[in-house]
Design a protein around this nucleic acid. Structure first.
Lengths: 195, 195
DNA sequence: ACCTACCTAACGATCGTTAGGAAGTATCTT
DNA sequence: AAGATACTTCCTAACGATCGTTAGGTAGGT
């Protein structure tokens, strides 16, 4: 593999595990079998390396999400929503991207706060917008069954964050279980008749 | 205020904002108006300072939770659950404890992983147990209305974690709004008739 | 001839930590 | 009551280690 890519991948793992301040270029270089200053042939600084890792992660996540909704365009809404949770959970499981993504979103390095948030907020906004219109449009087959789309969207994001937390804590098995238990409650909640 | 307490409080703020690796004893000392080595008159190491801060936070959180359930022993279940979310959200807003608590739970410093998790897991287990028995017992006035207590407990924890995330992201106003939007969905979900 | 990708050596800064001492306060002895 | 003793709490100075980064050089490919 390309050396730049190798460094980026190693950096991702270290940033995910130790955070920006805790990760050291020395250790990253060691993982790549090169010396510390050699990193500077590919990246101009630690900040640069971090931000490029960040960019690639956000881009991949965005692409994956769009792809999911494209592929499942015609599925029933309930299935599409639950499948989305499952696909997110599986993607996050694949490598260090989840920890990196969540860690950076929750606790960005203070010196790079603005740069990070300029990526995080649009990502979250796009996600909320996508979800809102999805729930407002309802299911193409069964018609509109969500009475309060905005409330349902907000609740779904809350549910999703709760799943994310369990991915961090408990890993694959426990977060999968959470989806199985929490999603039916959510779905019953948003489809129940009035209050 | 006592010097030890002053240091502990300053340390809490710094650990919350910059993480274990990102926080420096120099800056903590500056905030207290003393020199860096003077910290060692009160704490034997950075680890020691961190772990004592951790202990005090967990202890306070535990006390507050117990106190809430004690005071609201006779309230209706719905009110008690929603009030719990609100009280947690308010407590977390008060000072740096929330950020510290959540940051440490999600991303403990690698060198102190075991010590941290020896506090985190019992805390979470106790919370889940308390909640399970609460939901299984049902409401003292209106009788048992939760059909699947374990599922409801798991979903409630997921909901709570989702609120926590929004406290980190959006602060008081947005997390309060999340409670208003997501809790009714949860409650409708766990009280709806069958599926 | 230049460029890329690596190297060694070393820079200044900062990290947590220790040594050793000064001042203040409390405790014990005479 | 007075003086000696010990303990607490702060200080300055400095330690070795590690941090991100730069300078300068070398080998190989274009």
């Amino acid at each position: 593999m390309n050396s730049s890519q190798l460094i980026l991948q190693a950096a991702l793992a270290h940033f995910a595990r130790d955070g920006y301040e805790g990760a050291s270029l020395k250790n990253i270089a060691d993982d790549c079998g090169i010396r510390k200053p050699s990193i500077y042939a590919h990246y101009s600084s630690k900040d640069d390396l971090f931000l490029q890792a960040l960019r690639s992660v956000f881009q991949r996540q965005e692409e994956q999400i769009l792809q999911y909704f494209e592929e499942n365009r015609h599925a029933p809404l309930e299935e599409r929503l639950k499948g989305f949770l499952n696909s997110r959970q599986q993607e996050y499981q694949r490598d260090d991207e989840a920890r990196f993504f969540l860690r950076v979103s929750f606790f960005p390095p203070r010196t790079l706060y603005e740069e990070v948030m300029d990526m995080v907020y649009p990502f979250l906004d796009a996600q909320e917008l996508r979800l809102s219109s999805l729930l407002a449009a309802g299911c193409p087959v069964h018609g509109r069954i969500i009475r309060r789309p905005r409330q349902a969207a907000s609740a779904f994001l809350t549910l999703m964050d709760g799943i994310h937390v369990e991915i961090l804590y408990g890993g694959e098995a426990r977060s999968a279980k959470r989806i199985e238990q929490a999603f039916p409650v959510y779905w019953a909640g948003v489809t129940s008749k009035g209050k």
